[in-house]
């Protein structure tokens, strides 16, 4: 059935909008559905049968994965930026770097030997990343205000 193709098309778009609140997602799909219905009607008015009209309409509208992704991207910009991922990954990075230094310590290299040195380096190296992430978060918070 031609209608099923439109439903599948809309479902593909919906799949890219999973992060949206349901009411917003429904509103997006409602608008797209109306546009598609109008396109189908215009092709039928020009003499196409239902199946050909649906084909033409879907082609004319574009690839649903791409459209869904683009709409999702625009909405994602509105979400308030979060800091906790950076705060969680920092100690994990410290532990990982410290462990790396420790495990590689039995080799005759320049790697830091003293526990204190290892700890300081393990904390300092990802600190630059954390600082960058925090300043980006703070900028995004103020940009987010109307």
């Amino acid at each position: 059935m031609a209608d099923q193709r439109i439903e599948r098309y809309l479902a593909t778009i919906a799949g890219r909008l999973r992060s949206l609140p349901p009411s917003l997602r429904e509103e997006e799909l409602r608008e797209v559905r109306q546009h598609l219905d109008a396109l189908v009607a215009s092709h039928r008015a020009r003499g196409a049968d239902e199946s050909a009209a649906v084909d033409a309409a879907l082609r004319q509208f574009g690839r649903p994965e791409r459209i869904g992704r683009q709409i999702g991207t625009v909405w994602a910009r509105r979400r308030p930026p979060r800091l906790w991922p950076a705060l969680v990954s920092y100690p994990l990075l410290v532990v990982a770097i410290f462990a790396m230094f420790t495990l590689l310590n039995d080799r005759p290299t320049d790697f830091p030997y003293e526990l204190g040195d290892r700890l300081v380096l393990a904390m300092a190296l990802p600190a630059a990343l954390l600082v960058a992430r925090v300043s980006r978060y703070r900028r995004a918070r103020t940009a987010h205000l109307p």
């Binding site: 608008e31 004319q60 459209i67 991207t73 625009v74 910009r77």
Partner: peptide, 15 residues
């Protein structure tokens, strides 16, 4: 144009 691409543009302009 691929008419669907109007919608991301409309959302961005509204934002």
């Amino acid at each position: 144009l691929r008419e669907g691409s109007l919608y991301p543009a409309l959302r961005a302009l509204e934002q």
